[in-house]
Computed example of a mutant assay.
Amino acid sequence: MAILISEEAIHTFHTEWGLEEGQYVRIYAKYVGGGGDAFSIGINVSADPIDPVLVEPIGGYHFFVEESDAWILKDTLLKIDRNEDGIVLNVE
């Protein structure tokens, strides 16, 4: 489990999302519907860590994953980037 965040995404978190330096950003599993891909990855900028399995200081923010959500990122690299539509998440 690893997280890679582009400079463009960091800039977007600051300018468009209004995040302040030192703020925590939770990465979590979210239910999006039935079928084979019932879960996706979400971002919550109004949460503080309770039982984090990973906390990564990147670009002035603290990105974290709770123990209860670690399963969705097991053995993966999460890339957070920005395109013309906004923040995009890619799992490899």
Rank of each mutant, 00 (worst) to 15 (best):
I41Q: 03
Y28V: 01
G33H: 01
V45R: 03
G36I: 09
I27L: 10
Y28R: 10
E56W: 12
A38Q: 04
I43S: 07
G42S: 07
A29I: 03
D37P: 08
I58D: 07
P57E: 13
V45K: 05
R26K: 14
G33T: 01
N44P: 00
A29M: 09
E56V: 12
F39L: 09
V45S: 04
G33P: 00
R26G: 03
E56R: 12
G59R: 11
I58Q: 13
G35F: 00
I43P: 08
S40T: 07
G42F: 10
G35M: 11
N44F: 03
I27C: 08
I58L: 13
I50Q: 15
A47K: 11
S46L: 03
K30Y: 03
G42D: 09
I50H: 11
P52V: 14
G33I: 00
V53K: 10
G35T: 02
V45I: 02
S46G: 02
K30L: 07
P52R: 15
I50G: 10
V55T: 13
I58N: 14
V25Q: 01
V32K: 06
Y28W: 10
G36T: 06
G34C: 06
Y31T: 00
I58S: 09
I50A: 15
S40R: 05
G59L: 11
N44W: 02
D48N: 09
G36E: 08
G59A: 08
P52E: 15
D51C: 14
Y28C: 07
Y31N: 01
S46P: 00
K30H: 08
N44D: 15
I43C: 03
Y31H: 03
Y28S: 10
I27F: 06
V55Q: 12
I27A: 04
I50L: 15
D48P: 00
